[in-house]
């Protein structure tokens, strides 16, 4: 790809989604946009680049942004955050919200749905902690196509074997030929909606827990800061944030601080936590 074309996509992605495209991601443009070029009947990626320099069709621009922002995912991806959710966050919240008996969670880049559904399954598996509670999982993504896939909740044999124990497969899925579809009980716990992280988050309401894993890595410093500032306002003074295991708030957020010995789990620096209860649930 020519440098001028790379810059064209780079600027477009920055403007439309805040996504930062570094030069080492050039291969991603090729692999992800070639199918888009094909879908739009361009002879090649180069031809599409030429067309984009004129008056680009907004629908084409949308397809490009969606193709570039779709992330890899799997059930219980990385394991650890779901352990922390089960062993630290849920027991704590079971106490701190015992009067309201409700729990709201936001998956801030839900992709094809495995993350929010993994949370829903974990909540169901731990119902003894939160019996009869109202649980709402809001899952957002910037791509309508991927949201459609997520709502359908039907996964290939390959997808259900990555990270999902067989007992949970047989318990919460129904077989549909070669595919496996999540049972209604799980699907109903998750509400999917289109949302761009650059937009006003106040419209989403408040959440006890936010998961924003492996998302910030795609943004530049400025945008990362902005997103974390906005997220800090979306959780109550004793809420939680999950980031990807390789991500950090160091130098980009004054609001959040990592919980010791809980990789990927963050609390509000100026928060109001029952530290004794929190440490007790963290110690297991």
């Amino acid at each position: 790809m020519r440098i001028a074309d790379f810059d064209l996509y780079k600027d477009m992605l920055m403007k439309q989604s805040g996504l930062t495209l570094s030069a080492d991601k050039c291969y991603l443009l090729d692999s992800r946009l070639t199918p888009v070029a094909k879908k739009w009947d361009f002879a090649s990626l180069d031809t599409m680049s030429v067309a984009l320099r004129g008056m680009p069709d907004p629908a084409l621009v949308k397809d490009i942004v969606e193709a570039m922002t779709t992330n890899e995912t799997s059930f219980f991806r990385d394991g650890k955050p779901f352990e922390l959710f089960k062993e630290v966050v849920l027991p704590y919240i079971a106490k701190s919200r015992s009067t309201q008996r409700s729990l709201r969670i936001w998956c801030a880049a839900s992709s094809s749905g495995q993350e929010p559904y993994s949370l829903a399954i974990t909540a169901l598996e731990n119902q003894h902690l939160i019996p009869g509670w109202k649980i709402e999982i809001v899952a957002t993504d910037i791509s309508d196509d991927i949201l459609e896939i997520a709502r359908k909740a039907e996964y290939s044999q390959f997808e259900v074997q990555r990270g999902l124990p067989i007992q949970l497969l047989t318990k919460y899925f129904e077989q549909n030929n070669e595919n496996w579809k999540l049972k209604e009980e799980v699907r109903n716990m998750v509400k999917f909606q289109n949302f761009n992280l650059l937009n006003d988050m106040a419209t989403l309401g408040l959440f006890d827990i936010i998961l924003c894993r492996n998302v910030l890595i795609y943004f530049n410093e400025e945008t990362k800061k902005e997103i974390l500032i906005k997220m800090a306002k979306r959780i109550p003074s004793d809420g939680f944030l999950f980031l990807g295991g390789a991500e950090t708030v160091l130098g980009i957020s004054e609001d959040f601080t990592p919980m010791s010995d809980c990789r990927g789990l963050y609390v509000l620096r100026e928060g109001n936590y029952d530290m004794e209860a929190l440490e007790k649930s963290a110690a297991g």
């Binding site: 799997s74 044999q157 390959f158 074997q161 990555r162 990270g163 124990p165 067989i166 007992q167 497969l169 047989t170 077989q175 070669e178």
Partner: peptide, 29 residues
Amino acid sequence: NDLGHIQRAMNSGADEYIMKPFDSEIIES
């Protein structure tokens, strides 16, 4: 790869179940 086989295997003391074809990621998982 049907539920009947999976359940029979688990009831007979299997710990996990992989439906072929598999790859290294699935085995590792």
